[in-house]
């Protein structure tokens, strides 16, 4: 029996974000929102552990303008209950603020053995929240997990590194940040999502968490985000293959893309 907390972030569906035609800033508000992909993997992994070993799975989500329907999707997948903090102040939250808020919320939930996170979020991809959470609780964390198994009261994790796979172990409680490769998240059918309204969603106010002003102030300030504007040059070369290769090589050198 392990009780698992899964951190779910609601992000803009980045595939549907379009830059503003003039300012080139991403129009995040216009894109539909979804649960960050990695977090669905985290939830799926938690559910698989639960199916095998028993226990509870609790979803936590903090942010601005949290959508109930998306929380219900998580409950429909199989989470037992959800804790949500929805506050406009969290719109500018960075990894620091997010981790502090999540930690304060998790402290309210009571007993847990494992926290599962995505390794990064779909929209900002900072790779921050998981490790920071672990630091706050002063417990071990393992990131980039591609496979995980409970073993002798601890957790054994296959961790994707540049050079290959590291197999590491940690005692519980711990924080695990998972990658997309770890599983294929189950898809809750609409019928299940409807039925999930029977499961509890606990709304907690940010003020109830007792966070200090410092904890709620982002450490990072984003000055500007802009889409790259790429124009193709549409150069057409004509001639025999040998000539073409020659011409192409010359252009590449000219542009400084290849050194002679």
């Amino acid at each position: 029996m392990v009780d698992i907390i899964v951190c779910l972030k609601q992000t803009a569906d980045v595939n549907q974000v379009r830059p503003h035609p003039e300012t080139l800033e991403p129009q995040l508000g216009q894109a539909p929102r979804k649960i960050s992909d990695f977090d669905l993997n985290a939830l799926e992994e938690a559910l698989r552990i639960k199916e095998k070993h028993g226990g509870r799975v609790v979803a936590v989500c903090v942010g601005h303008d949290i959508q109930q329907l998306l929380i219900r999707e998580a409950l429909a997948m199989g989470a037992d209950e959800a804790y949500v903090v929805s506050d406009p102040r969290l719109e500018k939250a960075d990894g620091l603020v997010t981790a502090e808020t999540l930690a304060a919320l998790i402290k309210k939930i009571g007993k847990w053995d494992l926290i599962l996170c995505g390794e990064a979020s779909l929209d900002e991809s900072a790779y921050q929240t998981g490790p920071r959470l672990a630091e706050i609780f002063n417990i071990p964390h393992i990131t980039y997990a591609v496979r995980a198994e409970l073993e002798d009261g601890g957790i054994k994790v296959w961790k994707a590194m540049e050079g290959g796979i590291h197999v590491v172990k940690a005692s519980l409680p711990a924080v695990l940040a998972v990658g997309l490769e770890i599983n294929t998240p189950r898809l809750p059918s609409l019928l299940m999502i409807r039925a999930a309204s029977r499961k509890p969603i606990h709304e907690v106010k940010l003020s109830e968490l007792g966070l200090s002003e410092e904890q709620l102030t982002p450490a990072v300030e984003t000055l500007q985000v802009k889409a790259l504007k790429v124009e193709r040059r549409r150069i057409t070369l004509e001639g025999e293959p040998e000539e073409l290769a020659q011409k192409l090589a010359e252009i590449l050198v000219q542009e400084g893309l290849v050194k002679k």
């Binding site: 595939n15 549907q16 979804k34 997948m77 294929t184 998240p185 189950r186 898809l187 609409l190 299940m192």
Partner: peptide, 30 residues
């Protein structure tokens, strides 16, 4: 099988596309 939801990647993607983008191709309306 679909009620249980444990579908493979391609099927999951198609259904996700239908619910997010209202078409199975997964291409945005624009």
């Amino acid at each position: 099988l679909t009620l249980e939801g444990k579908l493979d990647k391609r099927k999951t993607t198609m259904l996700t596309n239908l619910s997010r983008l209202y078409n199975p191709y997964g291409l945005p309306q624009h």
